[in-house]
Nucleic acid binder design. Structure first.
Length: 213
DNA sequence: CTGACGATTCACT
DNA sequence: GTGAATCGTCAGC
């Protein structure tokens, strides 16, 4: 969890997660398993990476908080109905690009939102992308900041996470089950009772986790 | 075609 | 704590 020891050089000893990881039926299991994993972006000659410390699960057509609630199928959400292991990136509030991972089999629109990471590589690039001068904890805290720092934009929707542009990997960093805490999701009050479901997972005590202290 | 609004962030009081 | 920013998406007409 040391910040950027390598100034944007590819991290060693990473094992990319495969299709089997994403193509599972329980999106909560996947959202939880993603805590501690590493997200890497590598394009435009720039390499950035961070350890995932906060995720949210969106449980398909029965989840009032999901864009796919009730089976709603639009141009924007179409990718959620595709195969597992694709990126779903959409514009929120006209400003923020939010990065999600499509899971489960085709026609089952599950997704996991990555809400916070701890920077591991390419911090100078992240600073440039975000316009920040110092690498404080806000650099990659919150889903809008994560995408901005990693350079992810809506154009990356449909991008396969099995390739070398955007992918998730493990370095076998040990995470104890008790270090992962489940809480209600952020900013989904419109979802009624579903807003209370414990579908948000955080790495306990990590300073990059969003929300009030 | 139109209007309302969002899985947010940041500046300011 | 409050409100602005900012625009693609979507439902409704």
């Amino acid at each position: 969890m040391q910040p950027d020891m390598n100034n944007g050089v590819a991290l060693p000893h990473l094992q990319k997660l495969g299709y089997e990881f994403y193509n599972r039926t329980n999106v909560l299991t996947i959202a939880k398993a993603l805590i501690g994993k590493i997200i890497v972006t590598h394009f435009d000659g720039q390499y950035t990476a961070g350890r995932i410390v906060e995720t949210e699960a969106y449980n398909g057509i029965i989840d009032k908080a999901s864009h796919a609630y009730g089976g709603r199928r639009t141009n924007r959400t179409e990718v959620m109905y595709q195969q597992a292991g694709l990126a779903y990136v959409y514009l929120c509030y006209g400003i923020h690009h939010l990065f999600n991972i499509v899971t489960n089999e085709q026609d089952t629109p599950h997704a996991v939102l990555v809400r916070a990471v701890a920077p591991l590589a390419g911090i100078p690039v992240m600073l440039e992308r975000t316009g920040k001068k110092k690498a404080d904890y806000t650099l990659t805290r919150g889903p809008g900041n994560v995408s901005k720092a990693l350079g992810i934009v809506t154009g990356h929707t449909g991008q396969s996470l099995l390739g070398d542009v955007i992918y998730i990997a493990t370095d076998n960093f040990p995470i104890k089950p008790r270090e992962i805490v489940a809480t209600p999701r952020i900013g989904v009050d419109y979802a009624g009772a579903d807003a209370l479901l414990p579908y948000r997972f955080i790495l306990k005590g990590n300073p990059y986790v969003s929300g009030k202290k």
